[in-house]
């Protein structure tokens, strides 16, 4: 029969440090990029020189709806003229694909290594 693994007892300070680590990771990886503007919609804005509902490509019905929302052509111009830039950078695309694929390969393979210990202890 396989020897049962007895985990070490974690101290209160150890538990506190582990808790702080995972919270700090949330802030470092996700919050800081957010507040420093490193993430978010990749957009471009091209406001026409003369701003009218027509130059912004809005028909009379669209213009009427904008006005009901309290907008003028000038205040709506930036919203209407902002578009996503879907140009694909092949290098970033490949890096991103490798990161996601590599992450899943690592997690599944390493999990399997741990799983064998679990099954061994549970069934033998």
């Amino acid at each position: 029969m396989a020897r049962r693994y007895e985990p070490p007892r974690q101290s209160g300070i150890g538990q506190f440090i582990d808790s702080i680590f995972i919270v700090a990771l949330v802030y470092a990886a996700m919050f800081l990029p957010l507040i420093f503007g490193l993430t978010g919609g990749g957009t471009v804005t091209n406001v026409p020189e003369t701003v009218t509902w027509e130059s912004l490509g809005q028909n009379p019905t669209m213009a009427a709806q904008w006005e009901k929302l309290g907008y003028t052509p000038e205040s709506a111009a930036e919203i209407i003229s902002t578009r996503f830039d879907y140009t694909i950078d092949p290098v970033w695309f490949i890096i991103t694909a490798l990161v996601i694929g590599g992450y899943f390969v690592f997690v599944v393979r390493y999990s399997d290594k741990e799983y064998r210990e679990v099954i061994s202890e549970r069934f033998e």
Binding site: A29, M30, P33, L34, L38, T39, G40, G41, G42, T43, F84, D85, Y86, I88, W92, F93, I95, T96, V99, I100, Y103
Partner: peptide, 12 residues
Amino acid sequence: FLGYGNQLLAMM
């Protein structure tokens, strides 16, 4: 990835 690629990498 289209438009939010950096955020995808931050999450990963």
